[in-house]
């Protein structure tokens, strides 16, 4: 797939990092403002998709990228499970998904115990999943056209 014109490339260069940072902001403020892991993950995947669409897929080693994003997805879901099991071990009561960290004051950035950690794991998982689907479609197209 070929890239687009120089105007689109320049605007993408300027905007892409901002969109990525916005996704990270949405994820880590998920317990204070609207948003959370699901919304932030999709926004991060969208910034990568914008980059691929405007610059074209020629300069990407697609197979390697796909292996990497698939690996990130699997490790993110494993992290989610490990935090849940840690709640069972450390929490003392033997309850799955136990909130074992102190709650803190409502409205501060560092509060709500393990909920921000869950948010980060889910955000990584959703972003990597959607990026993997998109890369799989691109690889399929390249292989069929060849």
């Amino acid at each position: 797939m070929k890239g687009m014109t120089v105007i689109v490339k320049k605007v993408t260069e300027l905007m892409c990092g901002v969109i990525f940072l916005y996704g990270i902001y949405i994820i880590i403020h998920g317990h204070l403002t609207p948003g959370g892991g699901f919304a932030g993950g999709v926004i991060i995947a969208g910034s990568f998709i914008l980059l691929i669409l405007s610059f074209g897929s020629d300069f990407l080693a697609l197979k390697k990228e796909e292996t990497g994003s698939s690996l990130i997805e699997s490790s993110a879901i494993l992290t989610f499970l490990i935090i849940a099991v840690l709640g069972m071990i450390i929490g003392g009561t033997g309850v799955f998904f136990k909130n074992f960290l102190p709650g803190g004051t409502i409205g501060k950035l560092i509060s709500a115990g393990v909920i921000p950690l869950y948010n980060i794991a889910i955000g990584m998982e959703v972003a990597a999943a959607i990026l993997t689907i998109f890369l799989a479609l691109l690889i399929y197209k390249d292989e069929v056209l060849k």
Binding site: G30, H31, L32, T33, P34, G36, A84, F96, F97, N99, G103, G104, T105, I106, G107, S111, A112, G113, V114, I115, Y118, N119
Partner: peptide, 17 residues
């Protein structure tokens, strides 16, 4: 839960399964 956003609190704490 300590979370100001009640939807996030429900997703990750009350109904984590």
């Amino acid at each position: 839960t300590g979370s100001a956003n009640l939807v996030t609190g429900v997703i990750f704490d009350f109904r984590g399964y």
